[in-house]
């Protein structure tokens, strides 16, 4: 009896995991096309247009090309770590999709199925933990390449991610003081019945956004792969699909951090006035998923917009911004939030 229920739950979660991972990979795949199209639009070009109508098959062509390239493992590298690097980068990128609530529950054969893989009560800390592990893929891969440029790229990546994690963490503390919960599902429920968190935490959202750019190694903070100084940075020695994994992990990170930002500050799958309507739960959940996807797409577009607009920072500028501007701002935000909550007596 117990086993039967467990099996059903296992099956339900397994299907959900497969769908979420597949959707994540698919969206990240088309984000690469999106990036090139946005870049073309910003620079008054057409962008990829040969593969399929309007270039719609370009990501597939890129993937096939990468798979068929010759794979080179340098002689002086430690091979095991060299292979493990890109795998870890990919793994940590996908792992954080586990706790994001993609929608409200749906009803299948009279049974409520929540659209979140794991609703743990430490949700946001889990994201934080996975983000802090993300640096290992870069560091192992770069060290195993046995190349000085790679190593410098990895050191830049590690120090950048550790520095911006501080401001990110303190911003999250302010958000947690407002919501009073660590669970992402709970946060979305609160925003459904009240206001979106962006109204309470505008400064916090701004700091979070800048830190997300730094954590994803996106321009203007893409110093670990600054091609004019480091000839490619941490993935210099990589070829074939291993290189593809590193590049692809960046797009997955972008997708996941957009999802986290939409969930934390913009109500997740919440559509205003939807919960007052009398739609059946399945249709309401579908509308919610579409709303979340629209929010995520808007954020991804913003990531790309910034990449093709703002030039890369210098390394000392990056560190100054992180330690001397963002960290004090985040502390200020936290203290003001705490004071306001104290005076309002919530």
């Amino acid at each position: 009896m117990f086993l039967a229920i467990d099996l059903l739950l296992l099956l339900e979660k397994l299907i959900l995991i497969i769908i979420v991972v597949m959707a994540t990979l698919g969206i990240a795949m088309y984000a690469t096309l999106g990036e090139r199209k946005v870049a073309a639009f910003m620079q008054d070009r057409r962008g990829p247009s040969r593969a399929g109508p309007g270039g719609i098959l370009q990501p597939l062509a890129d993937g096939i090309k990468l798979f068929f390239k010759e794979e080179i493992i340098p002689d002086f590298s430690s091979k095991w770590l060299f292979v493990m690097g890109p795998a870890l980068a990919m793994l940590t990128a996908i792992m954080s999709s586990a706790i994001i609530p993609w929608g409200d529950h749906i009803v299948i054969a009279g049974k409520n199925v929540p659209l979140v893989i794991a609703d743990v009560n430490i949700g946001i800390l889990y994201v934080f933990g996975v983000v802090s592990l993300g640096v290992y893929g870069i560091m192992f891969g770069a060290w195993a390449s046995n190349n000085k440029f790679s190593l410098i790229g990895a050191l830049r990546a590690a120090s950048q991610i550790i520095s911006y994690e501080l401001a990110l963490g303190i911003t999250l503390i302010a958000l947690l003081m407002v919501t009073g919960t660590l669970s992402l599902t709970e946060m979305v429920k609160q925003q459904q019945s009240g206001n979106w968190n962006i109204i309470y935490q505008p400064l916090g959202f701004f700091i979070f956004l800048v830190c997300a750019f730094a954590e994803c190694n996106r321009t203007p903070f893409d110093l670990p792969e600054a091609e004019n100084e480091l000839t490619g940075g941490y993935h210099l020695e990589y070829s074939s699909m291993k290189l593809g994994f590193y590049l692809f992990a960046e797009y997955i990170n972008m997708f996941i951090s957009s999802a986290v930002m939409a969930t934390l500050y913009f109500g997740g799958y919440d559509v205003p006035f939807l919960d007052e309507s009398l739609l059946s739960p399945n249709i309401a959940a579908l509308v919610g998923i579409v709303a979340l996807m629209i929010k995520i797409t808007a954020f991804i577009f913003f990531f790309m917009w910034v990449r093709w607009t703002v030039p890369r920072f210098r390394y000392d500028q990056l560190m100054n911004l992180g330690w001397k501007i963002l960290l004090p701002l985040a502390l200020f935000n936290m203290i003001v939030t705490g004071a306001v909550i104290l005076f309002l007596g919530k």
Partner: peptide, 25 residues
């Protein structure tokens, strides 16, 4: 769960990265 995730954030995520830094350099 809180101790579990903090253990990962602090030890696996921060301290071991610094260890790696030192070893690699």
């Amino acid at each position: 769960q809180f101790l579990a995730v903090v253990n990962i954030i602090v030890y696996a995520g921060a301290i071991m990265v610094l260890f790696l830094f030192v070893i690699m350099l």
